[in-house]
Nucleic acid binder design. Structure first.
Lengths: 190, 190
DNA sequence: CGCGACGTTGATTTGCCTCAACGATTGTGG
DNA sequence: CCACAATCGTTGAGGCAAATCAACGTCGCG
């Protein structure tokens, strides 16, 4: 049941009646994504907000020198989108790619706006989710400045062991902001 | 009129009637802050959310080695708080210090909760503000990974010239995540 | 089987840090 | 208002973290 996971996720953020939950869930459509498939590519407009039910995604940017910089990975129970492009319908700087066979629930912008209008608890839900996200991004930035590559690596595998298992070293290095060669050298020394 | 600035700031995010604006503003209290004064120190709980009317603040963390890492600067028309500590009433990892004689409007957590309950447009307002903030933090992280120190410096002074003018090089280096000695060397070459 | 992506390793270079010293500026107390 | 201290910006020498480039064996997949 993909919707059960979504309902549980919502309830982690706000208390809500079963009927409200049902109501919200109706707006989300399940879709399957093949390994390697892109849900979004840089330069396009992000037309959806998604909730991962199964599988794994990588959200990353490719800079002018061709370097891939991974913003985050989204596995089961994570949300995924380019929030900037989705909100403002502007050209996205991000790519969203499935790293394995995956399943997600998506909602498009029109339905999202409808949801906001129909139920003020939805405003609250996404207000809280966004505020938590801000806090998380701030802490991530502090860690990135304060820790060396090896410490960031340890932090990542300790904090998200189940995600780390799904990833290649190259993918992890793109998240840490280092080269894959250097990650290999880090791992060698213990 | 400190409240006029706040009202204009709010209107940048959501359309709202003058009476709603008035209603919201009533919950904010103006306070003056002396240069050097701390509104928040690491280890304490953030008891307020603030909107800067005048002056300049620095929001930073001090890590275990004593290095100061600046998350952001808040000048006129910016919001300021430790969102994590304020939401969850947990111990803060941030310091908020006035860099000059300043004036802000603050609201405490109880009043904020009241506001949310009384008016669903407030939910929407802070939902949108938070979503914009998420987008901004994500882009900041990408820049931090993709750009070299010199490029980050150029980006900062070009994007926030009026803030850069108020700051010492040491403060800027703490924001860029480099030492002040290295910033000095960057500036020399060109 | 063969090809492409992967992880590894070494040699070299580069970006940035550390430490130390100095003069210039700012702030402060007498 | 001055004298002194503190903080600031600058510079240099040296060191370390991480990038770059190149080569190699391995593995999974078509």
């Amino acid at each position: 049941m993909p919707y059960q996971l979504l309902q549980e996720n919502i309830l982690k953020n706000v208390k809500m009646s079963p009927s409200d939950l049902e109501f919200i869930c109706k707006y989300f459509k399940p879709i399957s994504v093949n390994k390697g498939e892109f849900l979004l590519q840089q330069g396009n407009i992000c037309k959806f907000e998604g909730f991962v039910v199964k599988g794994c995604f990588r959200i990353f940017n490719i800079d002018t020198e061709g370097k891939e910089n991974t913003l985050y990975f989204a596995v089961k129970d994570w949300w995924l989108m380019d929030i900037d492009s989705f909100m403002n319908q502007t050209s996205s700087e991000l790519n969203i790619q499935a790293l394995e066979e995956s399943q997600i629930l998506i909602i498009d912008r029109t339905n999202k706006e409808t949801l906001y209008k129909e139920s003020s608890i939805v405003e609250k839900l996404f207000r809280i989710m966004s505020q938590k996200a801000v806090a998380a991004w701030q802490r991530r930035l502090i860690r990135n400045h304060g820790l060396k590559a090896k410490e960031r690596y340890s932090y990542f595998v300790n904090t998200y062991p189940e995600i780390a298992l799904k990833l290649t070293d190259r993918q992890i290095s793109g998240y840490l902001g280092i080269t894959h060669e250097f990650l290999s050298k880090i791992k060698r020394k213990n």
